Amino acid sequence: MKPWLLQIFTWWNGQTIGTRFHTWRFGERVGEDELGNVYYRTKGGAKDKALGVQRRWVVFNGEAEASRVPPGWKGWLQHTVDVAPSEEAYQPRDWQKPHKPNLTGTPLAYRPKGSILAEGERPPATGDYEPWTPGR
């Protein structure tokens, strides 16, 4: 019961009822990545009349976070490449790094030395700072 309620009332957690219906009616499964995200395109490779290109979309496994799309699939979704990674022997380049979640706003976020949110004692000011004053 809970998964169905989440599909009705949340858009950020997997797919909504509307996306599920659209995918069932017009979608063709292309593949799945290592994170469990599933990728679709319009059935038969049909082009959208308004866009002039084939529609492509992803149904996220869990929270909808765009940074969770691997580089190969990102290129396919954005029409940078025509062949999906599942349809070829795709190997990521050395400079393409695996996903790291965005931790901003969480207790695990990066807090540099001197931040008021960092643990420990904040170091004292060194005296090299002069505040700006209007009219100076």
Rank of each mutant, 00 (worst) to 15 (best):
H79L: 04
D94A: 14
S67Y: 02
L108W: 11
G105Q: 01
G31C: 01
A46G: 05
T133A: 12
G52T: 01
K74M: 13
P70D: 07
G75V: 02
H79M: 08
E28M: 01
P134G: 04
L117S: 13
A125S: 15
G120N: 04
A89F: 05
T19V: 15
F9N: 07
F26Y: 10
G105C: 01
A50Q: 06
Y90P: 01
I8N: 07
G114E: 02
W76C: 13
K113W: 12
P112Y: 05
I8V: 13
Q91A: 09
P101W: 01
E34F: 05
R55N: 12
P101N: 02
P107S: 05
T133H: 10
T104L: 10
T126D: 15
G27V: 03
P123E: 00
V59A: 02
T10H: 09
K113C: 10
P134F: 03
N13C: 11
D82P: 05
Q91M: 04
E88G: 13
P101R: 00
Q7V: 05
G52N: 06
G114I: 07
S67F: 03
W57K: 14
L51A: 04
W132V: 15
Y110G: 09
T126F: 12
D33W: 10
K97Q: 09
K49F: 06
I116S: 14
L51H: 02
E34N: 12
V38E: 06
T16L: 11
E130R: 11
F21V: 14
V58W: 00
Y40A: 14
W57H: 13
Q96F: 00
K47E: 11
A46T: 03
H79V: 03
N37I: 00
F9Y: 07
K113D: 08
T10C: 11
L51N: 12
Y129K: 12
P112M: 03
